[in-house]
Design a protein around this nucleic acid. Structure first.
Length: 455
DNA sequence: GGGGTCGTAAACAACT
DNA sequence: GAGTTGTTTACGACCC
């Protein structure tokens, strides 16, 4: 049981603190490498090797291991030495607080029994996020959440693959669910964020992000950020509603149009194995786009007879205005039966936007699971990872005092309430998630703000 | 009214 | 020749 009264715990430090002098200093190597958590086939299946280190922390979700470390823009990639993949704490049981579990992330480490780990919780697949089946639960949860002042705040993060948990319900079947935000970076696409974090203005009236962002997402999901046109089609067909009507090829035209017009997408020659005959082109993300997101396709369109640098204040205003284009129209054009339930913003992360959203949103109307789908399988549950600032000696923590993302002042220092650390709540045996909305709130607060624990 | 975003249509060329 | 891929222009809708 962690001792929250330990003054050392109050600091969101990133190093192992050691309180005994007869042992060597503990490395400041990050405990949980930052990773954008591509969903792995091995997710949830590969047990972690027992290690000499046995941590007891309040565990709220299953940890997993990621296939490769991939740092978001502006941060060094994590490295654990040649041939070593970063490993994450893992346990097959979830939401059992204070359960001791093993992990070994590739570094020999001795840890004092009285050492402390203090860091915001790291990218964390929220495996057992419940599938909301009752709008009353969702409404109740929202009431609770919105009554908490700190929930109007948000967590700083700037990386691809952001996902805001937004619940929807329909007037017909009242099945709230989660939809991907598909927001890329706050720098390029986040200036329409609102405090509640649910205003996904990057969506169009069909509920999908714009083509440029879809393509970007597809390429971000692809190895080396490269895809041929056909695969981009496939990704969009799989992950959006664009291809609902197979007879409608207009969306493919739009995809090609965006590929051609957006400077973030470059085509390179595709050659055969002998490097001889040309096999067409493969589309690749510009490095700047990988690092900083993409810009609107429109910005690359030629402006006949006028030169524009798009950098002055008025232009930025116009760009924002354009970004919010048709806001009212989208609202009205959006499926009338779809009711957005406001949910405070915790920019979680999808496991992989390349996965079929139907798998991630089994309860989404129109994305009904197949009869054979095992909804308890990790692959079929919605995944959310925690937002987190970089934790590395090379990528030091950003200052936590205040972040200004436009209208959003970010103060992520809220501590989880004490009672969260006391495992008094009941857990649904099916989902492993606390059955009490109050506990759900706590877990969201927990996930949104960080974890302090002892080992 | 100008300029922004975005989707869409269409013409056209080059390639397979 | 048909289909696919890529480029470019144009336009409407909507925003500030």
């Amino acid at each position: 049981m962690p001792d929250n009264s330990d003054p050392a715990v109050s600091d969101y430090g990133q190093s192992f603190e050691h309180d005994t002098e007869d042992q060597p200093p503990i490395t400041t190597e990050p405990l949980f490498p930052w990773n954008d958590f591509q969903q792995s086939a091995a997710f949830g299946q590969e047990p972690f090797a027992p290690s000499e280190t046995n941590y007891s922390i309040p565990q709220l979700a299953t940890f997993s291991r990621a296939p490769e470390a991939q740092a978001p823009s502006g941060h060094d990639a994590w490295s654990y030495g040649a041939g070593q993949e970063p490993m994450f704490p893992h346990s097959s049981s979830t939401f059992r607080h204070h359960e001791a579990f093993h992990f070994n992330h590739g570094l020999p480490r001795s840890v004092s029994a009285h050492s402390s780990i203090q860091r915001p919780i790291l990218p964390l697949p929220m495996r057992q996020r419940p599938l909301w089946t009752d709008s009353t639960v969702a409404d109740t949860m929202n009431e609770i959440l919105m009554s908490e002042p700190q929930h109007s705040q948000s967590f700083p993060y700037d990386a691809a693959h952001q996902m805001a948990p937004c619940m929807y319900s329909t007037s017909s079947d009242r099945l709230p669910s989660f939809r991907p935000d598909m927001r890329t970076t706050q720098k390029d696409f986040g200036d329409d964020l609102t405090a509640d974090g649910c205003e996904t203005d990057d969506e169009n009236k069909d509920g999908n992000p714009p083509y440029a962002k879809l393509i970007y997402q597809a390429l971000m999901d692809a190895p080396e950020h490269k895809l041929v046109l056909r695969d981009i089609y496939a990704w969009i067909a799989q992950n959006t509603d664009k291809a609902k009507n197979p007879m409608n090829k207009g969306w493919q035209n739009s995809v090609r149009h965006n590929l051609s017009m957006n400077g973030s997408f470059k085509k390179v020659d595709l050659v055969d194995a002998n490097n001889k005959s040309k096999k067409g082109y493969i589309w690749v993300l510009e490095p700047s786009a990988v690092g900083h997101g993409i810009q609107s396709t429109t910005r690359y369109r030629p402006k006949p007879g006028k030169k524009h640098d798009h950098t002055d204040g008025a232009d930025l205003k116009r760009q924002r205005a354009g970004k919010r284009r048709g806001k009212a129209a989208r609202r009205s054009g959006r499926n009338k039966s779809l009711t957005r339930i406001h949910y405070p913003r915790f920019p979680h992360y999808p496991q992989s936007a390349g996965q079929d959203l139907a798998l991630h949103c089994p309860t989404e109307p129109g994305n009904q699971p197949s009869p054979s789908m095992d909804l308890n399988s990790p692959a079929n549950l919605p995944y959310y990872c925690l937002p987190t600032p970089p934790l590395s000696t090379r990528s030091p923590l950003p200052e936590y005092s205040s972040y200004d993302y436009g209208d959003n002042i970010v103060c992520p220092e809220t501590q989880p309430p004490d009672f969260m650390l006391n495992d008094a709540s009941e857990h649904d045996p099916e989902t492993g998630f606390p059955s009490d909305p109050r506990s759900r709130r706590v877990e969201d607060q927990f996930f949104g703000h960080g974890l302090t624990c002892l080992l």
